[in-house]
């Protein structure tokens, strides 16, 4: 058994196992609900939280982040609810719309199906990290110019996906772009303009 496993066992013990081991809580199980609730809100709660969370070190938009989170926290919810990087959107929470698209080590992925802990040691880029200071990324410029959005909610995901579409070499024709952008739903229906924007960036030859 390697060290990682041992380490995991220490830090990732489930709440259930913890409760089994906790004599205090075992005793409380025999006492009225209100007392248990009060106790859980108190010190036991804090202990339980500490044991239920695990450390995560991940670089997001070039900034090293060290947080403690429950294993069930997705990358999407980590970004939105804890780091307040709300540019990454929740559209379905099930990998069916692409609004949550971010880059992990340069690859576009659905952050809603990515458990945050699996990004340990990786580089995550979100829409907030795409521009160079006040200078928009060429894809952001092209979306603006071609009006590649309406309500704007799917837009960060579209742009993150579009950047990879070119980097992957899948933006050679409008048909290819349509296929390789089909993981990003736009309900306002801006596809026609989005394809124009991507083709424009591709043909412009700027580094994406």
């Amino acid at each position: 058994m390697d060290d990682q496993l041992k380490n995991g066992e220490h830090t990732g013990t489930s709440r259930r196992s913890f409760l089994k081991k906790s004599s205090l809580i075992t005793a409380l199980a025999l006492t009225p609900d209100t007392v248990i609730k009060a106790a859980e809100k108190g010190i036991d709660e804090q202990i339980a939280s500490a044991i239920e969370t695990m450390p995560l070190n991940v670089t997001i938009n070039g900034v090293k982040q060290s947080v403690r989170i429950e294993p069930r926290v997705t990358l999407l919810d980590l970004l939105r609810e804890r780091l307040h990087l709300t540019g990454t959107k929740k559209g379905c929470d099930h990998g069916q719309c692409g609004a949550c698209t971010v880059h992990v080590d340069g690859q576009r992925v659905n952050s809603c199906l990515t458990l945050a802990l699996t990004t340990e040691g990786r580089n995550v880029t979100t829409i907030e990290g795409l521009a160079d200071g006040d200078n928009l990324h060429p894809m952001q410029e092209a979306f603006l110019e071609h009006d590649g959005f309406q309500c704007g909610y799917c837009t960060p995901g579209q742009i993150m996906s579009a950047v990879c579409c070119i980097r992957e070499g899948h933006a050679n024709t409008p048909e290819e772009v349509r296929e390789y952008m089909s993981g990003n739903i736009c309900r306002c229906g801006a596809y026609s303009n989005i394809v124009d924007a991507i083709m424009d960036v591709k043909q412009g030859g700027k580094k994406v």
Binding site: D2, Q4, S17, P71, L115
Partner: peptide, 19 residues
């Protein structure tokens, strides 16, 4: 989602053992 424990492994042997 229920709470669960999480363990990261680096070899297939430790994966099978952890399971």
């Amino acid at each position: 989602m229920n709470q669960f424990s999480y363990v990261r492994v680096t070899s297939k042997e430790s994966a099978i053992a952890a399971m």
